[in-house]
Amino acid sequence: MSVLLAQPLAAGHPGFLSPSGVEIVFVLVGIVTLGAALVTVATRQLVHAALWLVVALGGIAVEYLLLTAEFIAWVQVLIYVGSVVVLILFGLMLTKAPIGRSPDADSGNRWIALAVSLAAATTLVTVVVDAFRSTWINVQEPTGPGSGSSEVTGTALFRHWVLPFEVLSVLLLAALVGAIVLSKRNKAGER
């Protein structure tokens, strides 16, 4: 099936040895993203971890742009970089996170975690590369709005995905109420 799909899309099957410009940019941004993610999970300074998370999430937004998903990219910038990281920074501040290096940022089972994640990475990379070795994405858009523009995404969202969208609003309301209830201070005599 993948061959059938790839045949009309990729004209002449470009090879690994002649990467296109989009692929080169994708790999470079991917390396930056991966490095930022590694620093995020490895650094001992908590605030630096949150700031490197901004770099990783921004890199993923650029990858969305390269994959022609423009609307998702801007939503990613708005929600992740704009609000989630700010929430995390506030959380670090409110839990009195140490500013400098904290020696106990990593747990004692770090080496087990490293072994588990390396094993998972090896297995998954092997499987994924083997599965999609001859599969190509056509990122060249025909004329008109691309498949990731806000017009197309909005049409699909409000035509086919209206019910999940509305359910999602209820979920967000429940999360809002839950967060307020959880963080409300109890009265002194209540406990």
Binding site: G30, A113, L114, V129, F132
Partner: peptide, 26 residues
Amino acid sequence: MHLAYPAVLAVLLFCVGLYGVLARRN
């Protein structure tokens, strides 16, 4: 674009996150 590039990047990011979940204390 080769589909393996985003797929492999997603796999590696997932495993980095897996390491973080397992290894972090805070």
